[in-house]
């Protein structure tokens, strides 16, 4: 494993030393390392790039599925399918780091599908970063499809703080009765970066619920688009929230779409976009911070 891969991995995961559970480390479109565990089988797909991650019922484990692109002119596409057995309680650390050193663009398109069985619980962590001195664009386009069986729970924590020039994120979920989905997204864009997020959740089962929360900061001339679609097709609860700070000449658009197809569907959308409030800067300055330090602290807290 070269130094760039190690550096990217340390940025997107908490891997240190030997991994005890199942993992698959993908580098520049190939498999760098793979390990199944007693309860988690990682099986390479036949006929297309990617793996099947089969998690047995009642498994409690942390699974690492990171991907790295370490050089320019790589166009990586991968299909990973997660089958999470009944009553399992797992944390899946995915994430992607892209490093470019030349003029050519590099991109990683990860298409992840989750089949979460009855009563299973999943925490899915996805951190995206871009590094390197190359002028080639660092592009990450993740797609996530989630099917949730009755009474299952999934929490998706997705973070992109630095260095990714362009991202288009698609997340779609279908929830059966009593299933709960929480998606927390944190994005910071700078320079002339572009980030687009599309959430679509179908609440098909009674008493299912979704909470989609996005916090973002757009600096310099970067642009962001946040679109969230929640369809309440039965008695259910749905909430989406877009909170954004714009700085310099940053631009953020928030487009909520709520459809209640049932009289007992309760759906809420909140969006707040604006610059850092002057009174927040003033307060922190009265504690001895300079205006720049205060601004950095407010952004850090907002994206924490």
């Amino acid at each position: 494993m070269n130094d760039i891969t190690k550096r990217l991995l340390s940025m997107i995961t908490d891997i240190s030393g030997e991994i005890k559970g199942a993992f698959n480390i993908r580098v520049d479109g190939g498999c760098e390392a793979r390990q199944s565990s007693e309860n988690v089988d990682i099986i390479p797909k036949v006929g297309q790039p990617g793996i099947d991650i089969v998690i047995k019922p009642n498994t409690k484990e942390k699974i690492y599925i990171p991907a790295c692109v370490t050089k320019s002119n790589v166009d990586d596409l991968v299909y990973n399918d997660f089958y999470v057995g009944e009553n399992a309680d797992v944390t899946i650390v995915a994430g992607c780091g892209v490093h470019t050193d030349g003029e050519e663009d590099s991109q990683h398109n990860g298409i992840h599908r989750f089949f979460v069985k009855r009563n299973a619980k999943v925490r899915y962590e996805e951190k995206h970063v871009g590094i390197g001195e190359g002028t080639g664009k660092r592009i990450i386009n993740p797609q996530t499809y989630i099917e949730m069986a009755p009474d299952s729970y999934m929490e998706m924590d997705t973070v992109q703080i630095k260095g990714v020039d362009s991202t288009k994120r698609e997340s779609k979920a279908v929830l059966q009765s009593g299933a709960k989905l929480v998606i927390k997204e944190k994005i910071m864009t700078h320079g002339d970066q572009y980030a687009e997020t599309n959430f679509q959740v179908d609440l098909d089962g009674e008493d299912s619920g979704a909470d989609l929360i996005s916090r973002s900061v757009a600096r310099d001339t970067s642009r962001q688009l946040f679109r969230s679609v929640i369809n309440g097709n039965t008695r259910c609860t749905g909430h989406s929230e877009c909170d954004a700070i714009i700085m310099d000449k940053g631009v953020v658009s928030a487009i909520p779409e709520l459809t209640a197809n049932d009289i007992d569907a309760a759906l809420i959308h909140e969006a707040a976009i604006g610059k850092i409030a002057g009174e927040q800067l003033t307060k922190l300055m009265t504690l001895g911070l300079t205006s720049e330090e205060a601004e950095a602290k407010i952004v850090e807290g907002f994206l924490k």
Binding site: R215, E279, Q280, T282, L287, K297, I298, E300, G301, F302
Partner: peptide
């Protein structure tokens, strides 16, 4: 402040440390 300022993400601990 007469009307204290609110922050998203900054905790009471953060604020006391800064102070």
């Amino acid at each position: 402040f007469q009307q204290p300022v609110r922050f998203k993400g900054i905790t009471v601990r953060d604020l006391i440390n800064l102070a």
